[in-house]
Computed example of a mutant assay.
Amino acid sequence: MTNNLSEYALCLDPDARQGVSHAWCMTCGMRSQEAEDGPAVKHWCLGHAEETGHKRFRAVATTFLMVGPAPGRTTRR
């Protein structure tokens, strides 16, 4: 591993889905499906709360990253 991290940059992975999120009910452990649409996860939480009375959720948003050459660098060493 190099000590010169300025040779690299962290960026969004163009080949991966972006903005994937899901939520867990903290009361019963049920989990929403993953969705690229944030409002779909919020809608699941609201629907689950209405059906069960459960009110605590854990939401997770995932972003996929990749490391590439820093600006001005074209090849990896």
Rank of each mutant, 00 (worst) to 15 (best):
T2G: 11
N4Q: 12
S6V: 11
E7N: 05
Y8D: 01
A9W: 05
A9F: 01
L10H: 14
C11V: 14
C11N: 12
C11M: 13
L12M: 11
D13P: 03
P14G: 09
D15Q: 12
D15I: 01
A16T: 06
R17T: 08
Q18T: 07
G19W: 02
H22W: 09
W24I: 04
W24E: 02
C28K: 07
G29T: 01
R31L: 03
Q33A: 12
E34F: 08
A35Y: 00
A35L: 04
G38D: 07
G38K: 09
G38I: 00
A40Y: 02
V41I: 11
K42E: 14
G47T: 07
H48S: 00
H48L: 04
E50C: 03
E50G: 02
E51V: 05
E51K: 12
E51G: 06
T52Y: 13
T52I: 12
T52C: 08
T52L: 13
G53Q: 08
H54M: 10
K55G: 09
K55T: 14
R56N: 04
F57K: 01
R58H: 09
A59C: 07
V60K: 06
A61H: 12
T63P: 00
F64I: 08
F64Q: 13
L65N: 04
L65K: 06
M66N: 15
M66V: 14
M66R: 15
M66P: 10
M66I: 15
G68L: 06
G68N: 08
G72P: 00
R73H: 13
R73S: 12
T74A: 10
R76D: 02
